[in-house]
Design a protein around this nucleic acid. Structure first.
Lengths: 98, 98
DNA sequence: ATAATTTGGTTTATAACATAAACTTGTTTA
DNA sequence: TAAACAAGTTTATGTTATAAACCAAATTAT
C-alpha cells in the first residue's frame, strides 16, 4: 500500500496546530495557544488533555501572580510522533510518484 | 492566525488517499482504489460519494464486459481543492517559521 | 463594600464523521 | 443448479471534534 497510516491523534486540525506551535516555541501558555489557534477554550482544553494523555506534551499548572497558568511543552515522544506524521503525510502529498 | 483552515473534506485519511491517487492517475476503477488504499468497499463507497457530491471527483458507472465498473476521475475543482489543501497544510508543517 | 465583568479554564452535550458489518444484485465456477 | 465470487450500496455503531454551559477566582466598576 503506497499510503502510510496517519496518527489519528495528530491528524486533527486543532491538535496539529498545537503541536506545530509547540514544536517551534517549546513552551507556551494556554491563552497564547488559544489566541494563536483561534480555538475556543473548551475545545482547546479537551485537545490538550488528549495530547497530554498520549504523552505528546506535558502540562504544568502553576500560577502567574495570583492567576492560574497552564504551560504546555512538547515531549520527545511528541516531537518524534510529529516528525513521523509529517513523513507519513508525504506519501499522500507527493504528486509525482514517478 | 498563523494556521490556515483545512478543508474537512480532504482532511480525512481515506478521502485524501483517493484524491492523491486520482491526482496522479487521472482515472481509476473502484477495485483498484480499494486495493491501493486498503479500504473496505463500504467505507470507500461512502467516501467516493462524498467526494463526488462535493464535485471533487466525477464517477462514471459503466460495464466491463458484463460486470459493473465504477470509474473515478478528479475534476478541476478537485484538483484546485487538493492544491489549496496542500498549501494550507504547510502552515502547520513548516517547523522553522522564522 | 459588593456587584458586575473578566480570566482561565473544565465538564457536558451534541452533531458530524469514519468505519465496519450486513445486505443486494448479478456473474462465474464447481 | 448450487455455491462462491465480484462489485458495490445501505445501514448501524462507535468515535471524535466542537461548542455550549458551567465554575472558581481575581479584577474592575459603582
Amino acid at each position: 500500500m503506497p499510503f502510510q497510516p496517519l496518527d489519528p491523534l495528530l491528524h486533527a486540525e486543532l491538535r496539529l496546530a498545537v503541536m506545530s506551535l509547540l514544536i517551534s516555541t517549546d513552551e507556551a501558555e494556554f491563552p497564547y495557544i488559544k489566541e494563536q489557534t483561534g480555538a475556543t477554550a473548551g475545545n482547546l482544553s479537551v485537545q490538550v488533555d488528549k495530547l497530554s494523555a498520549a504523552g505528546y506534551i506535558s502540562v504544568e499548572k502553576t500560577f502567574k501572580g495570583k492567576r492560574p497558568c497552564t504551560i504546555c511543552r512538547i515531549t520527545e515522544k511528541g516531537r518524534q510522533a510529529f516528525e513521523a506524521y509529517v513523513e507519513a503525510l508525504k506519501s499522500y502529498l507527493q504528486v509525482n510518484k514517478s
